[in-house]
Structures are given as C-alpha cells and as structure tokens.
Amino acid sequence: MNDFLCDQPILIRFYPTATYECSYLPGRDARSLVASPAEIIDGHAYGQLIQHGFRRSGLYVYRPACHPCHECVPVRLDVQQFQPHRNQRRAVKRHANLTSHLQGLEFVDEHFELYRRYQAARHAGGGMDQDDREQYENFILCSNVTSFLVEFREDGKLRMVSLIDQIEDGLSSVYTFFDPDVPAASYGVYNVIWQAGLARQLGLPWLYLGYWIRNSRKMAYKTTYQPLQAWREDNWHPLTPDN
C-alpha cells in the first residue's frame, strides 16, 4: 500500500519505519507503515484508514507491517448484536457504582497521576512508565479527529480514564488507564461494555478495539467480545475464539 486517495481530494502516502523491538511478542522485531503527512489526516480521512486496519497514537497514524509476522490483527465489535456473557455481566454489576463524565482533551493533573500509577504497575520497564507530561500530552491529548476523554469515578474517586475517537461508522477505543490498586477489579471489561453501549446509543455500528494478538496475553482477550470482525486479506471477516 503506497498511496491512498480519499474521496475528498487529499493524497496520503505511506512509509515503513525502521525495525524496533516488538512490545507484545518477546524476541521479535516490529515495523509499522506510517500515513503521511499527519497534519492532513482529519476525521474523514482517518475514518477511511481505520476501515483498512490503521490506528492512531497521538497524531501518528499507522498499521503494523512486520513481514513475515502477521500476528497483529485489527478487530471491531458489532455493537448492535453484542450481548455480554455471564462473566462480563458480573463485571458490570461489580462496578455498578461507577459514574461517567465526558470531557474534552484537556490536561488534568489527576488524570496524569493515575496514568503514571497505571503505567508503573501494569507496564513497568515498557518505556511508557517513564512518560513525562509532554509525552503524556502528545499521546493522550493530541488529535486531528473527533476525540474525547471519559472519566469514571466511584464515590468521587477517579478510577479510570478512556480516550475515545468518534468516526463516521463507529467509536474507536484508543487507550484506557485505570486504578491498578483496586483488588479484584474488572475495569477493562467494564470499559469495553460501556463503550459498546455508548456506540449503540449513538446509532453507530462498530466499536474498533485495536489489534488482537493470539499469542499475547495482553491482547488475546478481545475475542471474548462477540460478534467480532477481523481485517484480513483486505476485508473484514468474522473472528471467533476458535479461529
């Protein structure tokens, strides 16, 4: 994929990065295909790119291009047909006291402090646990598309923050961080179900969940949300826990 002409008159080009250490599969090198120039990729253009397996990290729009590895598979959830299974319903019930509040992409000290605690507990040594304010803002608060934050509180205490993009055919779950010190919490499960519900309320068909990686403990869970589709061979196909 070298060029991409949107149905609006802008031309996007794609460039492979140098190889870097894979964050999900130990001992493997990774490479991304980056869409450029970033500043012209608005919500409409990004809406078309995400339908072809791309994702956003700050202003950086990319898709894995790790030949011969093809473990990173873009997935999206059919929110109109989604019905939580028993364990997922338990997570919703467990966190029934959470309240949600939507807000713009503004820096909040409390959010940043939670982000730092989450990275230190869940991703120690991964690099992001050393993020300073500027790196946090570039990752979480920089966007050329329609984006918003959702904070979740329990009895006034901040428990979780989600960054979500709204595109033409759905919502895209960009990043979520939560309180790592609450025992037996299921914030991640609750969050996916909450976002699916929001997409359904907005009349949008899809919740884009990023990449499913079968052999990564951190990323394999996504097939527990059904019906799921995967971007493979230049089209979307059903993806079940068995395939």
Rank of each mutant, 00 (worst) to 15 (best):
V108T: 08
L158F: 05
Q229Y: 13
P238G: 09
I213W: 01
C142V: 00
M128R: 10
F4L: 01
R232D: 01
G47N: 03
E106R: 12
E233K: 13
Y62G: 06
A199W: 05
Q88C: 12
R90F: 04
R116F: 00
P180N: 07
V92C: 14
C66N: 11
D155A: 15
L209P: 06
A120M: 05
L228R: 01
D129C: 11
R217F: 03
Q103K: 08
I193T: 14
R133C: 06
P9L: 00
Y175R: 12
A199I: 08
G170F: 01
Q195M: 14
Q195A: 14
R63K: 14
P16D: 14
R217A: 13
Q103R: 14
Y46A: 04
P84K: 05
N2Q: 12
F177S: 09
L105R: 07
I40D: 09
I164C: 03
N215S: 13
Q135R: 14
D181E: 15
A230L: 02
Y208N: 04
Q226D: 05
L198Y: 14
S172Y: 00
T176P: 05
P205F: 02
S32A: 13
E39C: 03
A45K: 01
L228M: 10
G53A: 02
I41D: 10
V79K: 10
D242L: 03
D242E: 14
I167A: 06
S216K: 09
A196N: 08
D3K: 10
M160W: 01
Q226I: 05
W236E: 09
Q83R: 15
L141C: 08
P238K: 08
R153I: 01
G47I: 04
E21M: 07
F152N: 09
A230P: 10
F54V: 00
K218I: 02
L239N: 11
Y225R: 10
L158K: 10
A30I: 06
L239Y: 03
I213S: 04
R89N: 13
